[in-house]
Amino acid sequence: MAYTVPRPKLTLAEKFYLPQVVAGLLITWKHFKNMLLGRTKIIMQYPEEKWDASMPSYYRGAPTLVRDEHGRERCVACQLCEFICPPRAIRIKPGEIPPASKWAKVEKYPEEFDIDMIRCIYCGLCEEVCPEQAIFLRKDYAITGLSRSEMIHNKAKLYELGGVMDGVVNKWNPKK
């Protein structure tokens, strides 16, 4: 059903538009002046000052992969994060864990796991969707590189950034 948004009735002065323009100009002028005279507080001069220390634990920095307390890689290459990732930054090549491995019962692991940090928008959906709690957005936010390939975080880099995460779901580990 069509719905007409009611428009406010304008007074003559408002219809003229110019008073409003002047009022707007005065507002911006106030900001300009205060900033110029140093009355507006400058919070932080970024590259020299950083807020790393006061960053909350849930900060959404670069996505990383984590291991559990036994050193097992938590990711089982279910590719759900690859699916959910809005900019399609994640690329996974799944593989089978060799039977000789201690964790053979997990069966599946990512052979390759790349996150293209040029594409990543730090949305955190990968962390949210992961059924194994293997991918977390950690606190690294200044991700830079001089080449495109440098900006693609491979598995080694992701584990290096991610480290160990314990105290989360633990279904693969033997009960006591």
Binding site: Q79, E82, F83, E96, E107
Partner: peptide, 9 residues
């Protein structure tokens, strides 16, 4: 096909 690709892709 085992572990090659998820079917939704």
């Amino acid at each position: 096909f085992r572990f090659k690709m998820r079917v939704w892709f």
